[in-house]
Amino acid sequence: MTTPTLLLVGCGKMGGALMRGWVSSPNPPRLFILDRKIQDAPAGSTVFRTPEEITDDVQPDIIVLAVKPAGAEPMLKALRNVLGSRMDKAALLSVMAGKSCEKLAEWCGRADMPIIRTMPNTPSSVGAGSTGLYASPHVSKAQKELAIRLMEQVGAVVPVPHEEDLRSVIAIAGSAPAYVFLLAELLEKTGQELGLEKKAARTLVRSMIYGVGKMLHELPDEAETLRKNVTSPNGTTAAALNVFMAEENWPRLVPLAAEAAIKRSRELDD
């Protein structure tokens, strides 16, 4: 299998997570990085601080766009100026929320630019990411397969048939690690308020979340079944779940949170 060449544009939280995941994978790609502020580039990679520094020998198979949405247009136009016809031989893989395939292709200066939009999450940095992936009609089968293979190196990949489906991916997977981190934060804080030492609360909560994730990942049971299995009638867990599952609490708040994420993704399109 030929080693793919990637140009990673932007090495912030998401771009950095992908970079760390790729370089620690069994078959890392040949990696070029475009970022003004990166401090610790992985061994074997090449760093450019500005588009103008990109050398003539760089021919990426995939350009990974991991900049903030506001910086996407000027960056893509600068890359077109520097890469010229080399850009036509690459596919663009965006990890941004918002910014449609049509808009990205326009900024690339080519209506039929192969655009792959993905919604990964930060657990990609430890090889346990969750990524939704949409490939525009101009993406070849080989380019789509390469994009899926790359994203599988950092976790699970779910291709979606419609670009609009990525909004749902954002709400239930892309943004969702923050929901779990918030739960961990609140449980740790509550544990300390109930008298546990900080280290003890931290260990208990984090090992519990790891164990729950492992069960969900490895067991065939539905999440509802696993919940019921740990909930004895009239026991302590049932008492706690009665609070969480009150109509005004989690059953209402989770859909509201997802709707807020989807609404914001639409605003980012503008």
Rank of each mutant, 00 (worst) to 15 (best):
D56V: 11
Q143H: 10
E163T: 09
E222G: 11
D88E: 15
Q143P: 10
A171C: 09
L226T: 03
A128W: 07
K141M: 13
P26R: 01
N234V: 11
M245P: 01
W22M: 00
H138V: 00
L219A: 14
G71E: 09
D57N: 14
E247A: 15
P26H: 02
N249Q: 12
A260Q: 01
A258N: 09
L31N: 02
A72L: 06
M96D: 06
T236W: 09
I148R: 12
G84R: 03
E164V: 13
Q192R: 13
E163H: 08
G15N: 01
V47G: 08
A246C: 06
T203L: 14
D270L: 13
A72M: 12
R80M: 03
L194F: 12
T3A: 13
G132D: 07
T122V: 11
K141D: 15
K198N: 11
R30Y: 01
V243D: 09
A200E: 12
S168K: 10
N27H: 13
G15L: 00
L93T: 04
A90Y: 07
E145L: 12
V169D: 10
E247L: 07
K144H: 13
P69V: 08
V95Q: 09
L183A: 15
E164M: 11
Q192N: 05
A240H: 10
A239E: 13
L7V: 03
A246T: 05
I115K: 02
A223W: 01
V157A: 05
L83M: 13
L83N: 00
L204R: 11
L7D: 08
S45A: 12
M208D: 09
A257K: 04
P51C: 06
A43H: 09
P159D: 06
F244D: 05
L204K: 09
A240Y: 04
P114C: 01
E106T: 10
T231F: 06
E188W: 00
A200P: 01
Y134S: 01
A135S: 12
S207G: 02
A171I: 01
P159Q: 07
P233Q: 03
K214Y: 12
V139Y: 04
K13R: 15
P26I: 04
K189T: 15
R49K: 13
S125V: 10
Y210G: 14
V47P: 08
T118A: 14
K263D: 14
M96W: 00
A105I: 02
V205M: 07
V82Q: 14
D56H: 13
A78L: 08
E193Y: 11
R227N: 05
G16K: 05
A66V: 05
M19T: 06
T46Q: 13
I38S: 07
M215W: 05
A72G: 04
I33A: 12
